[in-house]
Design a protein around this nucleic acid. Structure first.
Lengths: 332, 332
DNA sequence: GTGAAAGCGCTAACAA
DNA sequence: TTGTTAGCGCTTTCAC
């Protein structure tokens, strides 16, 4: 059996309230007694039981983190940010992997509340109205990652996907490309995917380039899917001079396909990505991409949650972090 | 305020014990009453408070997972296995990221016990005697990942690193290579690194090949480090015909360096890795490597912990999963 | 400044 | 089969 507050009180010859007071510094305690208690705590190696504490205080020092895929390169980096800030403030992380399944997401949202988590960092591939509404209705703080729900003002942190996609497309156009494929995700309910599409369209429109609908495809974040799409371009003889994939992983899928079929990148086709995950600069050719401050996204989200938990004021509920066009070797 | 067992009892006109019984199926309850209670639970949306439950039962349905780096490619895949099995058995995961720091590891080990986790899955880069002893002394189940501590018989799951390294080296030798560099990790306290070295040495010895000590270097799992090591080979004009890196990431670092300096892989130098992370077959050239069943390692570890928690018998405390030599395009 | 006692929401003897 | 009651380990009034 573990040592409890009772044991400490008995050994110190005081009441448990007194012990509680010295642990929490909640009320003045005469310094002699305080010393004595501290000494006993030291001797016995007593640690307050967080579960009991949770029960009475309805607090847990726990933050729930709901994500669609732990092994995803992008998410791993975000988690680092979340974890580090959490640790800094003494919060632990209850991790929930949903595989993007709505059922799971709702289940976890419920479960986490039951587990007395004090806040939730939520990330999903697609955000439909039902989910948004549900999130908005929660009484514990929730911060969304990578999705801004402009209407309902749920706290969120992301980059400006519209601008990012616009800049990338503009760069490609300025480099002389006229036929530019877009491999985007296939989730229409997904605000950021839509934003990216709008950015692409805007740039194309501004420059008076007609969008060839055959070149706008849904890749659904998957490497293999992107590979197949490019294979389709090749088979259909509509291979563009540039391919813009809205995730680095899809860009790599595209390049792999081109390489496998004897095309040179960027010699024959320029391929660019989005996110700048670690892999983007590991892979050869290095990926031209839009850099998101991935670690910071996690860190900022966590910082927000903690502020929210403490009832601190936050200026902007919707945080937009800066992005950056990174030119590397996969495009020209 | 949330609805509690009391509320349900009152509304159903029964005692809280009865409610508890229908929730847990712990004792027979007449079916009329059961129906009534179930109905009220449905109506009110009542969920038992796990914290209160934890307190009284000293159980939490929580398993602590201590790992050195969430964003590591290898670990992400392991976590998938852990998570999925955990979910299957109703366990949640308390995630702890240590960055391989011993202090953190010990701190978390303590913290997790205090949080009433029922078991711990532990993974670290290096395992010294102090830590091993500490782990062996814990009274809650602990399963080690990727390290087998033969002496103390702590439950663990990994592959046979000795054999894996032996087979890989043998393959290289059989392919005609005589100068084979080994880029290993630099942690001598680390059993599996040592095993890998032994496997390499054994194969070399058997074939009567002298090991050129200049070609055995410490890469510490880091891509950049491996890159620099190969740069060193080039500068020192001791470039071997094959490089065996004990992690895929290091192998990729090596290849990148070779590519950047105008060498062909595998034309000029064969490079092979270890682990077979997803990246190994995404990267071009595809990596020849030793495949570990990464997902399974996590899954099996979790399954073991759960058995241990339930006091079930487990045949082998030290589980060795099968590995496999995967021939791809980075070697010849 | 200190202690007694109530209670957080639940489970599990023990009675009935 | 059901209800009463005593805790689990802690914080927090409320007296003193």
């Amino acid at each position: 059996m573990n040592v409890t507050i009772k044991d400490v009180a008995k050994k110190a010859g005081v009441s448990i309230s007194t012990v509680s007071r010295v642990i929490n510094n909640s009320k003045p305690v005469s310094s002699e007694i305080r010393q004595k208690v501290l000494q006993i705590i030291e001797e016995t190696g007593y640690t307050p039981n967080p579960v009991a504490r949770s029960l009475v205080m309805k607090k847990s020092q726990l933050i729930g983190v709901i994500i669609p895929d732990i092994s995803n390169f992008f998410i791993g980096e975000i988690l680092n940010g979340i974890e580090e800030i959490g640790k800094m403030y003494g919060y632990d992380i209850l991790l929930c992997n949903t595989y993007g399944d709505l059922e799971q997401e709702l289940r976890y949202l419920k479960l986490l509340r039951a587990k007395q988590v004090e806040g939730i960092v939520f990330m999903t591939w697609r955000l439909n109205d039902k989910l948004t509404q549900y999130l908005a209705d929660q009484e514990i703080p929730i911060v969304l990652i990578n999705r801004n729900t402009s209407q309902l003002e749920i706290p969120s942190v992301s980059i400006d996907n519209y601008k990012g996609a616009y800049e990338m497309t503009k760069y490609l156009i300025d480099a002389g490309h006229r036929s530019i494929a877009l491999i985007r995700n296939n989730l229409d309910s997904d605000a950021f995917g839509l934003d990216q599409y709008k950015g692409y369209k805007q740039a194309m429109d501004e420059c008076g380039i007609n969008i060839d609908e055959r070149l706008v495809q849904y890749g659904n974040f998957m490497l293999d899917k992107a590979y197949d799409i490019v294979k389709g371009f090749i088979d259909d003889k509509v291979l563009p001079s540039a391919i813009f994939a809205t995730s680095d992983v899809m860009a790599i899928g595209a390049i792999n396909c081109l390489l496998d079929h004897g095309y040179k990148v960027p010699g024959d086709v320029s391929v660019v990505g989005f996110n700048d995950i670690k892999l983007a600069s590991i892979y050869r050719p290095n990926l031209t991409t839009i850099r998101q401050p991935i670690y910071d996204i996690g860190a900022v989200a966590m910082r927000m949650i903690i502020k929210l938990i403490n009832g601190q004021e936050i200026q902007d509920k919707v945080v937009i972090l800066p992005h950056e066009l990174v030119l590397r070797d996969s495009s020209k």
